[in-house]
């Protein structure tokens, strides 16, 4: 499946979740998404990632909207049930969007997304800006590991007491940033040498090709998103 197909489904799904008010319906949709997510390869890790965001959010929303601190401070709280129901609805909507996003992520790889972005109809500069950080961040992580090892040999201790760790921050960040910024000119020269913005669209070898039904699905999703956004504004 083309990487953009799942992405195209996300927007109308998010808008649909905002349009539905019934918590039970939202809960069913969430349960289906979580089951689908759990069945994917590395589903357990994705579910943990989901829980790490959503469980603290549930606690935060309960604390803020349940107004339990008011009760502890001796104040009377009216309409707690209604406030908690609204908070639950909000939580379910965020939970659905995150679960759907993780489900989409489980179906793609960074490499396939990068190739799809480069091969898309986006102008080359925009495609580069969206795709190149994905490639560069992997390089930077490797560089950060190299810098950390080199600085550790010079006595920078990442497990030092709190105030010394602040000094380590600059000692680790500076070589990484200077190293990468020194390459910027060369990268730009290499891109210019290839005249990467001379055409309106890039030509990419091995570009992922969407099936005809996927193209129709993209257009359908865009239309559905427009209708749902309109209905939300109308309400």
């Amino acid at each position: 499946m083309h990487p953009f197909t799942g992405l195209a489904l996300l927007l109308p799904l998010g808008l649909l979740a905002m349009r539905i008010d019934l918590p039970s319906l939202l809960a069913v949709a969430l349960a289906l998404l979580l089951v689908a997510l759990g069945m994917r390869p590395l589903g357990g890790a994705r579910l943990r990632q989901w829980a790490l965001v959503l469980l603290p959010l549930a606690l935060g929303l309960t604390l803020v909207h349940g107004r339990y601190l008011d009760s502890w401070l001796g104040q009377v709280v009216d309409n707690r049930q209604a406030a908690l129901l609204a908070a639950l609805r909000l939580w379910l909507r965020v939970a659905i969007v995150l679960a759907a996003a993780l489900l989409w992520l489980s179906s793609i790889t960074t490499a396939s997304l990068t190739r799809a972005l480069f091969a898309s109809r986006l102008p080359p500069g925009v495609a580069y800006l969206l795709a190149s950080p994905l490639l560069l961040s992997e390089q930077l992580k490797a560089r950060l590991a190299a810098v950390s090892e080199a600085q550790a040999a010079r006595g920078v201790d990442v497990a030092a007491p709190f105030f010394r760790r602040w000094r380590s921050l600059l000692a680790l960040a500076a070589p990484l940033v200077v190293w990468t910024l020194s390459d910027v000119g060369e990268r730009a020269a290499a891109l210019d040498a290839r005249a990467f913005r001379s055409r309106l669209r890039r030509t990419t070898l091995d570009a992922p090709q969407p099936a005809i039904w996927e193209r129709w699905l993209w257009y359908g999703c865009a239309l559905l998103a427009l209708v749902l956004a309109g209905s939300l504004l109308w309400r």
Partner: peptide
């Protein structure tokens, strides 16, 4: 553009 890409990666 390449600086912005580096900034995003930072």
């Amino acid at each position: 553009l390449t600086l912005m890409s580096a900034g995003i990666a930072f």
